[in-house]
Design a protein around this nucleic acid. Sequence first.
DNA 1: TAAAAACTATGAAAGAGATTCATTATGTAT
DNA 2: ATACATAATGAATCTCTTTCATAGTTTTTA
Lengths: 300, 300
Amino acid sequence: MYLELRHLRSLLAIRETGNLARAAERLHVTQSALSHQIKSLEQHFDVQLFLRNSKPLCLTPAGHRLIELAGQVLPLVAGAEHELQRVARGELGRLHIAIECHACFEWLAPVLSHYRQQWPQIEVDIRVGVSFEALPALRKGEVDLVISSDPVRCADLKFATLFRYEALLVMAADHALTRKRRIQPTDLVEQTLITYPVNRQRLDVFSRFLQPAGIEPAAVRQSELTSVILLLVTSGRGVAVLPDWVLREVAAANQFTTRPLGRRGMKGTLYAALRKTDFASVYVQDFVTLARQGGGQISF
Amino acid sequence: MYLELRHLRSLLAIRETGNLARAAERLHVTQSALSHQIKSLEQHFDVQLFLRNSKPLCLTPAGHRLIELAGQVLPLVAGAEHELQRVARGELGRLHIAIECHACFEWLAPVLSHYRQQWPQIEVDIRVGVSFEALPALRKGEVDLVISSDPVRCADLKFATLFRYEALLVMAADHALTRKRRIQPTDLVEQTLITYPVNRQRLDVFSRFLQPAGIEPAAVRQSELTSVILLLVTSGRGVAVLPDWVLREVAAANQFTTRPLGRRGMKGTLYAALRKTDFASVYVQDFVTLARQGGGQISF
DNA sequence: TAAAAACTATGAAAGAGATTCATTATGTAT
DNA sequence: ATACATAATGAATCTCTTTCATAGTTTTTA
């Protein structure tokens, strides 16, 4: 438990220069320092490392063994140091994104494909946060960025605003409710509501719209895929509540109609939650910028 | 140029215990020391290595990279340290032997085959010293032991006596000179002398017997192989001067006769020359012991 | 939810270890 | 043999590490 990289670097320098004095110069220490260092190393292992009565300095088998070790180890170390420097400079990194709402995938996917081109060195990944708590995972370093719609006060996290959105009721173009300009909770009493398969607490329709009014829709159906939900809607099997950006993407099809919920629409803000330590990173900042553009482009 | 093995060992301990305090305990330092150490490491590379707000402690990607490095490097280091300890204990080593006289091969070969069994971990090798200066090579660590018949005063070398020998004239059993009890230089005037193919300075017959008397044999033939020399001798093509141990080995054949050279025989002593630093080694000492037996067994 | 327990961070002081300076010793070349 | 180049040595200095004492966190427990 004594050998250090310093010793290996010295040994290598000595072998390459074949001479203590020049090795010392290269290592930016005095010849004396090197001599002391090697001596203490020899005392520690109780072996001679090279023979002094020769020019250039000649290694003993033990010395050779250490030089061999140096040859194996130092390049590995240099490689790792180099990578760490790149991490420090923000040229290399990881961006594991957790999304809490399925719908976010719709704007996130194109943003990410663009981002990947811009930052090929960054290891990007998405985890759809159903089975785990996203914010604790963020704090523990399991993920690096959480897309969330409700910011939480937390000492080591930072919430960066991405864009505002509005949740809209979606229905078939010929649906009865299209006659109404804005939808009230009671309007859904007779309806089949189609949602993503997650806990009701996490669905804004319930937590912000139906439950406050004490309303329960006639039926609830679930589907994981946005495209399937839309298909069910356009074929008249039910209505759904989706954020505007989703609808924007597929609006061209024009087979459904949307209406705002409540008097002034059910609006919200999307945030990127980050660890404060990561917040300054160029590559993280750049993701946020790109996300703002990608999501914000939508003018409904 | 700052990272040291100490840091890698710490990081590994931290990951394995998942906890600074216990890692510190394992490393036999205080928790404070570890905390300071990691902090300075993080400052040096300007990256965070793990996230503190989690239990167990969780590594950042940068931390992972260093742990990965530790996983590669530390086993290599441990291996080398282990080998050096064995070298120090004399369990592992190298014994490259240089012989200056061809004839030595005859007793050395069986000694070595015995030695190899006794010290399988020692890397044994023989170099027949024709093209290089044996003693300088010994001092420079190119070889580790020189078999020599003339000891030289030298501060860093030590000459261990192996055994005495006598050089004898060898001739066919029916050779004319068999009538003489002892051979004088003039006896060789008419003879064909068969020698090893080396410089005359290095052949005792010339340097110690013929040249002092100003005598030149009728002819000189050379052969590298002892067995060939003996073959030529027994078939009457000439005479040779060989050390007793060579003749001992093949005496059974009984097809030749030997006679001492000069009034009191041309005797000498064989030494093992060693670097003083190696002299104490068990495995070197043991070679010397074995060589004394191997060469000394001969009672002519 | 407060209190306790378990961990980690921090600053100052002490300690260990590395480096330098000045010099001596050793070996090499002229 | 002398000068030159190189390595070793000892004491002093300096740097870096570790410890101590304590404060600040987070997690667990009552």
